[in-house]
């Protein structure tokens, strides 16, 4: 009996400790999420305007740029963004599932670029050697990985090593709504940034349209990558927050249950001890 009590006490202590940890992680994730959410929201205004601008450029300018033209696809570059730590539920697995589905559809092996150690490990497990394995999302400042990842991705596309660039990332809507998706980055398809808008007025271009596109499109690609990275990073913390909230709730449930069992066991023990004493006294009295 005493043995059982001790066991229950030990388990209760363990669960309490775990609850402390998960609760702390929940708070950390919540704080980080709030900061990143602001970044994603402010980013959205920029991405939205940029998308509209590109659509109008593509619609009005009778010029061509490789970033706006589909070409025959021989090889595809796949950029995979993922979180760098665990304890965020199925967040990373779901992203990799989308990436796996993409790989399965490709005719030739993809050229893979990864952000974060987990994404890199995923690629290696699939027998792919990432041409670029970037540090985790948290290592990039508020400007995001666009200025680092962008030139690499554009280089692959510019030199014809790949004919299309797809990005696997997590689309962020709110703390409770985010989902893994794959989007085409290059060539920039109309509406890849925002819903297509009606062709605009006749614009004056400064410098003339071909040079203008050359100046603006690479920037747009980099900005887009940073935007996707920020959304993924925010989603990772949202996923961790959800997972840790659930873990804390479960721990609390277990604590309630264990406390109840512990009290019952203790009472049972006391009762049986009293019975022993009373039984013993009666026996002595009767004798």
């Amino acid at each position: 009996m005493a043995e059982k009590l001790r066991g229950l006490r030990r388990r209760l202590k363990t669960v309490r400790n775990i609850e402390h940890i998960t609760r702390a992680m929940q708070f950390v994730a919540t704080a980080r999420l709030q900061r990143l959410q602001k970044l994603v929201t402010s980013n959205q205004a920029y991405a939205h305007h940029l998308g509209e601008l590109l659509d109008r450029l593509a619609a009005t300018a009778e010029v061509s740029h490789p970033y706006l033209e589909e070409r025959e696809i021989h090889r595809v570059a796949l950029v995979v963004m993922a979180g760098d730590r665990g304890l965020c539920g199925a967040f990373n697995q779901q992203l990799f599932r989308v990436a796996d589905a993409a790989l399965a559809r490709l005719l030739s092996p993809a050229v893979v670029l990864t952000i974060g150690a987990r994404a890199e490990r995923w690629a290696r497990r699939r027998g792919l050697d990432p041409v670029a394995a970037l540090p985790p999302l948290s290592r990039f400042g508020r400007h995001g990985p666009g200025s680092e990842l962008g030139p690499q991705v554009r280089g692959l596309y510019d030199t014809g090593q790949v004919d299309q660039v797809q990005v696997v990332f997590e689309e962020f809507e709110s703390a409770l709504r985010h989902r893994p998706v794959m989007r085409q980055l290059l060539p920039l398809t109309p509406g890849s940034l925002s819903p297509p808008s009606e062709p605009g007025a006749y614009y004056e271009f400064l410098p003339p349209a071909p040079e203008l596109l050359k100046a603006v499109l690479p920037q747009a690609v980099d900005a887009l990558l940073s935007h996707m990275a920020a959304a993924t990073h925010a989603s990772e913390h949202a996923a961790r927050m959800t997972a840790m909230t659930a873990a804390t709730d479960n721990a609390q449930e277990m604590i309630t249950d264990l406390t109840r069992r512990l009290n019952r066991a203790r009472q049972t023990m006391i009762t049986s001890e009293i019975m022993d004493v009373v039984g013993g006294a009666n026996a002595v009295g009767a004798g």
Partner: peptide, 19 residues
Amino acid sequence: PAEDGYFGIMADHAPLIAA
């Protein structure tokens, strides 16, 4: 600031896209 120097915009400017 544009490539060839600074330029100004006032009300009723013609539609323009500039780097």
